[in-house]
C-alpha cells in the first residue's frame, strides 16, 4: 500500500469543515481531487485525506466573467462541456484531448491538476496563457491569477481551490496551444501556448507561455514585447520565435536536452503564433 500511514478518509459536507480539517491536521492532511498523484505517492506523512466530492464543485458554466470550472470537475467533464467548444476556437478542448488517456482524464480533477503543479502540465501552460483566475477558500473567498498561485505557494497554506475561471474575451482574440511529446498523450517534453488580442489587426495584448522547460509554465514577456503594436506576419512571427529561442530558460532533464528544448521553444512559439494568425484572419473575413 502506497499511503501506508493513511488513517482517515473524510468527505466533509461543507467547505468550512474541509478547511478546518486541513488546518487542524496540518501537513498530515491533504485534499484529494482525482487522487492520481496521492495514490501513487509513498508519502508517510499523509494520515488524512479530505475528499471534496460532497461540496457540489463539479460544474462547467458560463458566467458574466467567463467560464467557471469547479474544482472537482474531471478533465473528461470539461472536454465534454458544450460551453467550451466555442471558447477561443476550442483551444481548451483541443489541449485536454492530449492530456493522458481517457482512463486518467476520467479521474483527474481541475483542482487537483492546478494544485499538483506538475512542470509539464499542459493545463497549466494553457491556463496561465489564458490569464485564468483561481478561487481560493481560506475562511474567505478570494480570486487570484493562476500565475500568482505558482509564484507564491504560500497562498495554498491553508486554503482550498474551489474554482478556476477562464476569462471572457472579446472578438478579435485568439489562442493556440502546442505540445511536443513522444506520443500524443505522453507527458510533454515541452509545451507552449499563446493568447493574442488585436485592435485593427495590431497585437494589443500578448500572453505567451512555455512549460516543461523542464520548469513549470512561465510567461515569456520578452517575446510578447516583440509583437506588441505589430501585425502578425511571417516576419514578426519569425522574430518572436527567435526571441523565444534566445530568452527562454531551458535545461536538460531525463526527457530532453536543453539544446533540444531551445529548438522546441522556437518551433512551438512559431506554430502557436501561426495558428493564432490563421484564427484571426479567419475571424475577420
Amino acid at each position: 500500500m502506497a499511503l501506508s500511514n493513511l488513517r482517515e478518509y473524510v468527505r466533509p459536507d461543507g467547505l468550512d469543515m474541509a478547511l478546518s480539517l486541513v488546518k487542524e491536521k496540518g501537513r498530515s492532511a491533504r485534499v484529494i481531487g482525482g487522487g492520481i498523484d496521492l495514490v501513487r505517492s509513498s508519502s508517510p506523512d499523509i494520515e488524512t485525506l479530505v475528499d471534496l466530492s460532497q461540496l457540489s464543485l463539479s460544474y462547467v458554466r458560463q458566467t458574466d466573467k467567463g467560464i467557471a470550472i469547479g474544482a472537482t470537475t474531471t478533465l473528461t467533464e470539461i472536454v465534454e462541456a458544450p460551453v467550451l467548444n466555442n471558447y477561443l476556437q476550442g483551444v481548451v478542448v483541443e489541449m485536454l484531448r492530449q492530456v493522458g488517456a481517457p482512463s486518467l482524464r476520467n479521474l483527474a480533477s481541475m483542482g487537483g491538476t492546478l494544485a499538483s503543479a506538475h512542470p509539464w502540465s499542459d493545463v497549466i501552460t494553457l491556463f496561465v496563457a489564458l490569464g485564468a483566475q483561481v478561487t481560493l477558500y481560506n475562511g474567505v473567498t478570494r480570486m487570484v491569477p493562476l500565475s500568482d498561485l505558482y509564484a507564491s505557494r504560500a497562498l495554498l497554506s491553508p486554503a482550498i481551490i474551489t474554482e478556476a475561471l477562464l476569462p471572457a474575451y472579446a472578438h478579435g482574440t485568439a489562442a493556440a496551444f502546442m505540445k511536443f511529446s513522444r506520443t500524443k498523450f505522453d507527458i510533454a517534453i515541452l509545451n507552449c501556448a499563446c493568447l493574442i488580442s488585436t485592435q485593427n489587426g495590431d497585437c494589443e495584448s500578448v500572453r505567451l507561455t512555455a512549460g516543461g522547460t523542464p520548469q513549470l509554465a512561465a510567461l515569456l514577456p520578452e517575446v510578447a514585447e516583440v509583437l506588441l503594436g505589430r501585425k502578425l506576419s511571417q516576419t514578426s512571427i519569425g522574430q518572436a520565435a527567435e526571441m523565444a529561442r534566445e530568452t527562454t530558460l531551458v535545461r536538460n532533464d531525463l526527457r530532453a536536452s536543453g539544446n533540444y528544448r531551445r529548438e522546441l521553444v522556437y518551433a512551438g512559439v512559431k506554430r502557436c503564433l501561426t495558428c493564432v494568425s490563421t484564427h484571426l484572419s479567419g475571424a475577420s473575413q
Binding site: Y9, I32, G34, G35, I36, V39, R40, L49, D51, S53, T76, P102, S103, L104, N106, L107
Partner: peptide, 16 residues
C-alpha cells in the same frame, strides 16, 4: 467502469 466511465482501479482509493 466507475459510474460508466473507464478508470484505472489501481489509482482509485476504495473509499473514493
Amino acid at each position: 467502469l466507475l459510474d460508466g466511465r473507464v478508470v484505472n482501479s489501481c489509482l482509485v482509493l476504495a473509499a473514493k
